[in-house]
Amino acid sequence: MPYLIVHEEGCIGCHTCEMVCSLSHEGVINPDLSRIHVLGYKGEKFPVMCLQCEDAPCELVCPMGAIHMQNGVRMVDDEKCIRCKMCTLVCPVGGVLYDYINNKMIRCDLCGGDPQCAKYCPMNVIEVVPDDAVPEARKRGVRVLYGEAD
């Protein structure tokens, strides 16, 4: 499964990704239920979604063992999940959210291999890269997020 990386410097803050994400997953236009979110950080805007961490805090903290990697995507087992939302609390990028309509935890599932946000992003800020590339760009994105970038 491919990864998504974000070239944050090109983002124009148009929220198109949120629109198509909620539209394709939930069938409604509601940025609140989008799995990708445009953050406002020190006046800059850029999208953030689940980064499919290798040593994922959400997986470590889940008391039910409901979160696991499946074909390179971290999935939530709705049967096991008790919706305690601990994963939301520990995720450093806000990648896991509670869907209050369908009563389940939602997170980026890479649209089964064809991420719609990347397809619709007008500035090509969101890029799909193969999973064997652990790109420098993504590491940089995380550093920017924590204010350590150049």
Binding site: I12, C14, H15, T16, M19, K45, P122, M123
Partner: peptide, 9 residues
Amino acid sequence: NSCFACPLR
């Protein structure tokens, strides 16, 4: 920058 859902910036 852009308005909501607009690619034109």
